[in-house]
Each structure stands twice: as C-alpha cells, then as structure tokens.
Design a protein around this nucleic acid. Structure first.
Lengths: 378, 378
DNA sequence: GTGAAAGCGCTAACAC
DNA sequence: GTGTTAGCGCTTTCAC
C-alpha cells in the first residue's frame, strides 16, 4: 500500500524537502503517451519553458540558435501549444464573439466572413452563435458565450433583453452592434440605417412615377421579430406619408426568416386585395425574387405591370430575369470594418467613446422598376 | 521600497509560515473590481469553491439549502463561470471543430445549423473554420483549431494534406468526415456519395429519353479544387460511358464556388459548342438556376428545348420557373447525425471502429426535365 | 454533503 | 538572452 512513488500525506517539515525534489521529479516525469506539452519541448531543446513560450510569441527575444533548437523540438514532437492554458495565464483568450440571427442567410454569412478575414491575421478566432431572431434565445446564447471569455462581442441589432444588456455591461468588453444603426444604443455600431433603406425604396418608386405602391415584410410577434425588417417598412411608410400616399398597400405577413416563398405568398395576398398595385418594396431580395417568380407564374409582367424593388443585393438579384433593382449594402465590408474596429479597440489603438460607422447604402438600378413617363413629377 | 504588502524574496524557512498565511490573505483579498470568480461566490455563500463548482455541474450532490445560498450569491454577483479555466482543469473544452469549405453556401450552413442544434443540449460549442476549398489553407486552419483543444472534429470531405492527416492522427480525438463518403478514409463518415449523385443524374436524363446530354462543373487546379463536384461529374461521365454516350458535352469551366453566374457562363459555352444539346446536369442547383436564367434570356425554353437537373435542392430550386428537378440531400439532418455521432463517441455510448452513415439521396422530380416520348427506351 | 490540496499547461513579472 | 517564481480560475481526488 505504501508505494514509494505515490506521495502520501506529509508533515509541515517535509514540505520544504518536497519542494527540493520538485525539479528532480519533473525531470523524471515519463514522456507520457499523451499530447506533448511545452515542458516536453523545453526538455528536448534543453531550455526553460519560458524560452519555448517566447520562441512562439516573440521570437526576436530569443537567440537564433536557441530558437532553432526549440523549433526542431517542436517539429519532432508535433507540439501544438494549448491556447486554453495560454488564455488562462495571459487573460487573453483570442476569442471574439459574433451573434447572428441565423446561420443560413448569405448576408449575415458575409459579415462572419469579413470579420474572420480580419481577425485571422491577428490570430483571433470567431465564436459564432445564432438566435433564430429570438432575443430570449439571444440572452441564453450571450450567457454561454461569455463563459468562453471573448475579448469582444459583435451583436446583430440593438434590441436585447434587459438581462442581456446587464450582462453585456458587466462583461466590460468592447461591444459592437452590427447591421443596425440605432441612435439610442450605448455600444459601438457598424451598420446602416434600416429606416433609411425603406425611405430610399419609397423615394425611388415615387421618383419613377409610381403611385399605387406597397411593401411586403414579415409579421412581428411577441418574441420572434425582425426588427430590422420592420424598421425598413417603417421608413417606407413614413415616406409615403410625406408624399401624401396611403400605406394601405403595406402588408406584414408570415414569419421570418423572410424568403422566396414568403414573397410569393405576400404578393398573392396583396394582389388579391389591391389588384391595381403597380409597385412593391420587399424587405429582402429573397422576397422580391419570390414576387417576381410569382408574377411569372401569373403572367404578370415585371416591371411593365408591377415594379419590384428589394433589399440586400443578394447574388440572385443580378441574375434573375428581369434583374432586380435593389438597395445594396456591403455586408462583407461591414464585417471587415467590425473586425478592425474591435481589433483597434483591443490593441488600444483606438480609445475614447462610442464609435459609429455607417457603411452606407446604394441603390442598384436594374430592370425591375418601370418608369412611368405619363406622370408629371420629377 | 519595502512595502509590506508586496511579498519579497523569502528564505526557505519562511516558506512554511507563508503557507500558513495563505488562507488569511485569501480572506483579505479585496473584492477587486474585476469579474467575480468562483472564489467570490464561495465567500458570499460561505461555502468552499468546490461546493460552488458542484452546484453548477452536479446540483444533486449538494444539499438544497446550500445550493439555494450559492444560487443567490451567483445572481447577486452576476457570476459567469470561466470555461477557459474549467476546460484546463477538467481537460474537457466542450469545443467541437467544424471545417467548412466556405461560410457562404446554404447547404454547408445547414450542416453547421444541424450540428449546433444537437451540440447545444450537451453544452458543447461549435468552432467553425473555413478553407475556401483550399487544402493547404485547411491545414493551417486545422492547426490553429487544434490549439483550442476541440474534443472532436468534423471536416468537410476526405481529401487533406499529408501534414494535416498526421496532425489529425496525433490529435487523438474522434474525427468525422462530412458530406463525402470515400471508401479509403480512416475516419468516421457522415454523408452521401457524390459519385452516386452524378450517376443518378445521368440515369434520370437517360430514362427520360434524353441522349445529347452534358454537364457543367468547375475546373480543378493545383490547389483550389472542388473534389465533391468533380466526383459528381465523374459519376455522370461513367454512367454515360455505360450507356455508350460520349461525354464531350461535359464541361469543366470556371472556379469554385460554383454559382448562378457560373451556370450561365457554362451553358453559354456549351451552347456555343453543341447547339443541339438537349439536357444538362449542373453540379450545383445554383449553377442549374443560372442555366435556366440564361435560357430565359436567350428565349430557350426549359424543359422543351433544354432539360436541366441540379444538385442540392437549394431553396430557390422549388421557386424558380420552371421548378428545378434536382437531387436532394438533407444537409441539416446530416449535421444532426454528425453531432450525435460525435457526442455518442465522446460519451463512450458508442465504441469500436469506423462508423459510416449514409444519409442518402433523393431525386426530386419537378418541371425542368422533359420526357422524350419519341424515344424507344424505357 | 463538504472541504483541502494539488494541479491543468501555460505566461507575467521580475531576477540575473 | 534566459531562467525562476507564482499564479490564471477552475476541477480532480481524496479525506472526513
């Protein structure tokens, strides 16, 4: 029972001696069959663990000879440093969180793509979560993400539960709200104004001489809501109001994520109620394409009989027949800007208050909106 | 200089005494302004740190009263456990890596979605990387992912660099190759046979009485290659060979990711070379939709003049006019199966050798393939 | 049911 | 340029 290799309970006086032995034990510790650690490398290269650490993090601080030996040992052993341990010691995890509404939307994917491109160079990893457009789920996700100690967080949108907001504040890390520019927020923002998207769409349809115009977007219910889509609709309605046009043709129907079939169904409803509708704004290109396709099935000519304008400039927009006129946002660039803002903030290159980056909007005129010359307005 | 609070160098004899003081110092340690730790919770709840840990990981091991006090303390402090530290101590990171070719493909996103759904319940997090279809980049990504000590890895496809394969073996964790069933692999597989996809497409076109048929896919160059797409093309060609039909109409053009415009350009090439082509298989629905759209522009009727069959059953497939006949794979389910396989393996519920899960293929007959009744074959 | 001791594999800080 | 010390915030293990 009293195996000498197995340390037993020791009296106080033995502690110092034990300490003496530490080095010796360390040297004897068998090259276990498990993954090699920094210690294995240090022994093989005959240097201290710190030197190995330095070779990896700041090679210039080590003499070329030593570095060479260490590198060889690393290769020999197939050593892969453990960033979990490194994170704990340095208190820098190298994680940045990104919370998306859904994984399966090309534009949000582009944000993730853009961020990753920027973060990669700085050796940061993106931790991706998604909420299915549910802010209660977002709260859960934020909590479990914070347990990974991300150094910064990017969230889609500016609407959160109270508890989530509290956690975010307490986390005391840079936070940026992405894809939505809300004046009230306390965090950084990189995005564009969804409200402005709606206004721009309405302005364009009006400018083209269209008057009987409407919009299609998703419903909002208690929990699951597309705040950004609703903002776009709101902007659209406000612009109509200014022009003295009724917003009866604006319909909210179906649930997010808004997609092709959603657009097809919504235009069917709209056409049923207001057969005379001559122009429609869809809160997403996917819905807009659904509208065009439904028109194709019904032999309604776009844009001759019905004009369509979308949002997002998804890839399909420039391919569909007729090509879709839409409002473009560079989501990939948005992701890059977000990544850079966060990196700059973390490195202290950027200091001070709330940063607001507007990546802007651009109208891409293609073929899906008619020009009513018979109309008298500009 | 000799600030009493700052511990100085100590003689051996002082060490024991210092140890004595440890507890006292700990008790005195100021409630620093930083994030609360398990120690802060334990002090507030007047229990040991271990008890707090148990409340979080195995509540039944703690008396209800104690648990209650601990929970209150957690809430009071807004304590969020640090999984970085937990991972190091328990040697379980709760990470599972997923390597995708690209972030911006709906079907791969579905895999990530499916996996996440399954992993969430087990409190695992997905670590997502992407390679841009480049196996050298994959190697880099795998290396940096392994530094996070994922407990398992899911890779898209079975083609890796030698160095990558070595690392994977050494990592000594469960690995599953996803979306590609390659007989030669040493790892688990969850997927389908891309080769079979191509054969199925050819068989279907032939069965419908089409003879002058071809395919459109991407080129392969030294590094960046769509192995899966190429497999599908290969299957297609082999089936043609069996039927005694030339595969001259099979063209590989352009680079991945294959998308709408790729299909449009490829069909333009094909039509230029072989105006009499009557049927085409596109390695991806996106390319197939591009073909349909290009035909629309050229006033070529689909399927009357040209039949089109795709792969992937992307959302647009069932919306486009005419609706696209395609080969469906349930990528979401594929992700779920992958997640479950990995979880089962990790929990020891599953043991033994290489597991191969074929999620299967199904042909979705819609409107884009003609039926040539004038042909004599079945 | 609860606690004390001993790390997990690294790095910050400082010594030489 | 290199090494030593002392943790990072948890969990494992074992004692009671």
């Amino acid at each position: 029972m009293t195996t000498p290799t197995k340390p037993k309970r020791r009296t106080r006086s033995e502690v110092a001696a034990a300490k003496q032995e530490k080095e010796e034990r360390e040297a004897l510790k068998p090259a276990r069959k498990s993954r090699p650690t920094i210690r294995d490398v240090s022994r093989l290269a005959d240097v201290s663990r710190m030197t190995v650490s330095r070779v990896l993090s700041d090679p210039r601080a080590v003499s070329p000879d030593t570095a060479e030996r260490v590198h060889r040992a690393i290769l020999d052993l197939g050593y892969v440093p453990d960033r979990t341990a490194g994170s704990l010691a340095s208190r820098r995890t190298g994680f940045i969180g990104l919370m998306l509404p859904t994984l399966t939307n090309a534009n949000f994917s582009s944000v993730a793509h853009g961020m990753t491109e920027v973060l990669r160079e700085a050796n940061f990893h993106l931790l991706i979560g998604y909420t299915d457009y549910d802010i209660v789920e977002e709260e859960t996700q934020i909590r479990s993400m914070l347990a990974r100690r991300p150094e910064a967080l990017a969230l889609t949108g500016a609407v959160h539960t109270r508890a989530a907001s509290t956690m975010l504040l307490r986390a005391d890390i840079p936070i940026v709200e992405v894809a939505d520019l809300q004046p009230g927020s306390v965090h950084h923002s990189v995005g564009f104004s969804n409200y402005q998207v709606g206004r721009m769409a309405a302005q364009y349809l009006l400018k083209r001489g269209l008057r009987r115009i409407g919009a299609v977007g998703g419903e909002c219910d208690a929990k699951i809501a597309d705040y950004r889509g609703e903002e776009r609709i709101r902007g659209f309605e406000d612009e109509l109001k200014i022009a003295g046009i009724s917003s009866d043709l604006v319909i909210r129907q179906g649930h997010i994520p808004v997609s092709y079939s959603h657009g097809a169904e919504a235009i069917a409803t709209l056409l049923g109620r207001y057969p005379a509708v001559e122009g429609v704004f869809a809160v997403s290109d996917l819905a807009a394409v659904g509208v065009i396709l439904e028109c194709q099935r019904r032999k309604i000519s776009v844009p001759d009989q019905l004009s369509v304008i979308g949002f997002g400039d998804f890839e399909i927009a420039s391919e569909i027949v007729p090509k879709l006129t839409t409002i473009h946002v560079d989501f990939y660039e948005l992701g890059r800007r977000t990544g850079r803002l966060l990196l700059d903030t973390l490195s202290g290159r950027r200091t001070g208050g709330r940063e607001i980056v507007d990546v802007g909007l651009s109208l891409v005129e293609r073929e899906s909106v008619a020009l009513r010359l018979d109309d008298s307005r500009s």
